[in-house]
Design a protein around this nucleic acid. Sequence first.
RNA 1: CGGGGUGUAGCGCAGUUUGGUCAGCGCGCAUGCUUUGGGAGCAUGAGGUCGGCGGUUCGAAUCCGCCCACCCCGACCA
Length: 566
Amino acid sequence: MRQSRLFAPTLKESPADAEIASHKLLVRGGFMRRVASGIYDFLPLGVRVLRKIERIIREEMNREGAQEVMLPILQPRELWEESGRWSLYGEEMMRLKDRAGRDFGLGPTHEEVITALVRDNIKSYRDLPLNLYQIGAKFRDEVRPRFGLLRAREFVMKDAYSFDRDEKGMRDSYHSMYRAYSRIFDRCGVRWMAVEADTGLIGGDVSHEFMVLAAVGEDRIAHCENCGYAANVNLAGYRRESITGKARPLELVYTPGRRTVEEVSSFLEVEPRYLIKCLMYLVEGKPVAVLVPGDREAGEVKLERALGTPEFRLFNDADWECHPQFVRGFVGPVGLDGAEVLADLSLEGAQGMVCGSNREDHHLVGVEVGRDFKPTRYLDLALVRDGDPCPRCDSSLQVAAGIEVGQIFQLGLKYSQSMGCTYTDEKGQERPVFMGCYGIGVTRLMAAIVEQHHDDKGIRWPLEVAPAHVHIIPLNYEKEERRRAAEGIYRELLESGLEVLLDDREESAGVKFADADLYGIPFRLVLGKVFEESGELELQVRTSGERVIMSPQEAKNWIMEALTGV
RNA sequence: CGGGGUGUAGCGCAGUUUGGUCAGCGCGCAUGCUUUGGGAGCAUGAGGUCGGCGGUUCGAAUCCGCCCACCCCGACCA
């Protein structure tokens, strides 16, 4: 590539709408431009990086026996009616009509299309197992696109779907994808972690998310360095310690106007963890009281799993009005009528607690769980915090921020049953196919790589995903001999199979270096004063900042050496 | 969807409070000369329906109304 011809316009200043490093640097470095909120153009350098990432994905998917297909972005309503997701997916799916008024959706994911394809074309156990994947555009009408590629409305995703005869086959497929993902993220040069995850709208039972550790990540993950336990905080467990507050007799106390945990806590001079927070939820139209220690949050994903339905919400103003027996700010589990009571595990046997009394301006103190009231069930409902005890060992959990770059699911029969995807087994019995699905956010991964690999001057691409291997920077390019020398080195490196960018512009050294920093190509060969004197050039390593003077031949060998195995 | 904010040249911004030599600055771009190991200097120049529509006014970037786009916080979502 000759830089004078390369369409990769750089910017001195960050665009006003960018606030995180990957967004700023990908735009400043000429890798991409914004078209609309959450929608981007990819310029030649950006495309080169994307293709590198896609190549890694293809190689590792193919290695596990997956086969690439191409599925349509535009999908008919009927298919989504079959799975029931036409209504369930909601506003997040972009929808449109054709000229005849038929409904279509822009695919946010492809379970329906792939299940229909496989359903119509496999018949026998001999056709299984099967693993199909594709890499292409996906659309999700995010409520609030932000952070550049991290939360876009149109993005590139690799999605794969496995089809097996039974549960064991499905688990094997799942593990094979887990292995493929591990290699993919390793090769992309990111520090990542696989965590137990919720399955959300996709459905299924077992799921892992692959997280790239980064402060700007929108996910929180809890992990244990001792035993390796790791889970998304929205469902991470932690070992409960029994809670025993100050021993005192059960008593009604006057707490005028004290409704919140903070108010009651400071008024009664009792630490929040000795309060029982009683949250009123409306679950499928019925009131349910959810109890957690006063210093804890209830996790709604945990709650959804416990309730077995996504149809619930915290009481709103109208709900309080509809249920006047619940005294807002003073509800408590003791003597609570008309609501099921779900308590967090930590409350089992708790003593010396404070809770609402169901009477205006009064709380109860000296409450003992189990004696003064009995919850319907004890469940894991409270959210984990940094430093909580690991649920599997004695160590403590750490909570860190991460970017979700991939997620894998054991779907089971969810789609095959609703869509009739079956096969005939050896005995002639018709059976539903066990499915799994596996996604990687390719463009999001590109941004995640930048989040982990940059400095204040620009990107520092890991070797295997860099837009090129070597950046040749001849200074004083207007000099004929310099130009010829650079040209010679350029040709030679190209002939060695390297990907090379030659800065053949008559620009000042400062401009060339600044652009090179933004582009972030791993190895840089500078032809300057030293070259004039001794014919040697300077090899600069973008990541380490290392600079070594050597002959062109040595430089070539050095780089070839660094590239072995890539 | 609620709250807050911003739209002025390719990019980053000032000007709007108080309507009238306010169509401005920096970067970038073009041309010339000088520069060339970290975004160099001088000179000349091109480039803008001031987000859009409507209104008030002798006169609107500036005041009023509606709309659109974009950003932030929240809700939502994975």
